[in-house]
C-alpha cells in the first residue's frame, strides 16, 4: 500500500508564549519537534505497512530546518521523505497549505492512503487534513481513534464524536486524520537514525510541484491573521465564608439573586 503522511514541525511547548508587541509567537529558545499527532499518523501508517507491505512517504511544507523533523520520521521507519520549501510558500494559511500539500501528493504518485494528525499543536486549526482531501477530491475520515480493518478497497475506522464514537467505512484512496488515542508512536531506532542521515531528502519548490502562484503562500491565503494575543486572565473567584453551612448557602443565594441568575 502506498501511504503518504503529512507532518509539521512545531515548537515544543504546550504553553506558547506570544510577543505582546509584535503579536507573533516567540520561537527563540523553544526546541522544534514533530507535531505529536503527526507521530500518531506516522505510527498508523507504519503499522499498515507492516501488515500489508508497501511504502510510507513523509511530506512536510516548512523552512529548510524542517528537514530535521523529516529525519526523525525516517528514523522511526518511514521509507522516503520530501521537503516542500520555497519562499513563495511563506505565510500560507490552512487553505494554501493544503493546496500546496495536495499538489505535492500528486507529484509523489497515487497514494492509497494519506495520513495526517488531527491538528497541529501550534495552530490548532484541524483544517489542513480535510483541505488536502477536498483539493484532491478524496473521501476523508477525521478524528480517527482506531483502524479496525484494512482492506484493499476500504478502511473500517472508529471516529471519535462527542460522548462516543462512530464506526464508518471509508473507500480508498482516502485521507485519514488521527487522534492521539489511536496508538502509541514507536521510538526511532538507532539504525534508523544512522540511515536517516545518509538519505538524501529532496526539496521541492513551487515550480517543482506545478503550484499556481496565486494559490500558495500569503497571496493564496483566504484568511489573514489579524492579531495574536494571549487571552486575559480571568479575575479571581470569590470565596464565601460563614460560621455555618446555612449561612454560606444564604450568602450564595443572595449573590445569585443579585446577579439575576436565580
Amino acid at each position: 500500500m502506498e501511504i503518504i503522511v503529512c507532518i509539521k514541525q512545531v515548537p515544543d511547548t504546550t504553553e506558547v508564549k506570544i510577543d505582546p508587541v509584535k503579536g507573533t509567537l516567540i520561537r527563540e529558545g523553544v526546541p522544534s519537534i514533530v507535531n505529536p499527532f503527526d507521530k500518531n499518523a506516522l505510527e498508523a501508517a507504519l503499522q499498515i505497512r507492516e501488515q500489508k507491505g508497501g511504502k510510507v512517504t513523509v511530506l512536510t511544507m516548512g523552512p529548510p530546518q524542517a528537514v530535521d523533523a523529516l529525519r526523525e520520521c525516517l528514523a522511526m521507519g518511514a521509507d522516503e521523505a520530501v521537503l516542500l520549501s520555497d519562499r513563495a510558500f511563506a505565510g500560507a494559511d490552512s487553505w494554501a497549505t493544503s493546496y500546496t500539500l495536495a499538489k505535492a501528493i500528486e507529484k509523489v504518485g497515487k497514494p492509497e492512503l494519506i495520513f495526517c494528525g488531527k491538528q497541529a499543536i501550534d495552530g490548532d486549526t484541524a483544517q489542513v487534513g480535510p483541505g488536502i482531501a477536498e483539493h484532491l477530491g478524496l473521501p476523508q475520515a477525521t478524528y480517527v481513534q482506531k483502524i479496525r480493518e484494512v482492506q484493499s478497497e476500504q478502511l473500517l475506522v472508529e471516529r471519535a464524536i462527542e460522548g462516543g464514537y462512530e464506526v464508518i467505512t471509508v473507500p480508498l484512496p482516502a485521507m485519514i486524520a488521527v487522534e492521539k488515542s489511536i496508538n502509541e508512536p514507536r521510538f526511532p531506532t538507532m539504525m534508523g537514525t544512522m540511515k536517516a542521515h545518509k538519505k538524501t531528502i529532496p526539496t521541492w519548490s513551487a515550480a517543482d510541484i506545478g503550484a499556481e502562484a496565486d494559490k500558495i503562500g500569503l497571496d493564496g491565503s483566504c484568511t489573514q491573521v489579524k492579531r495574536v494575543f494571549a487571552p486575559e486572565r480571568k479575575g479571581q473567584g470569590e470565596m464565601l465564608t460563614g460560621e455555618t453551612e446555612n449561612e454560606v448557602c444564604l450568602l450564595l443565594l443572595e449573590k445569585l439573586q443579585g446577579a439575576k441568575i436565580v
Binding site: 521510538f187 538507532m190 539504525m191 544512522m194
Partner: peptide, 26 residues
Amino acid sequence: NKMGEMGLFGLPFSEEYGGSGAGCLS
C-alpha cells in the same frame, strides 16, 4: 526489551553484526 528494539545495544558495534556502527561517543 524496548532498548533492544530501539537498537541501543548496537550503538558501539558494526552493522556486520546487527549494530548501527554509531561509535563510542554515540
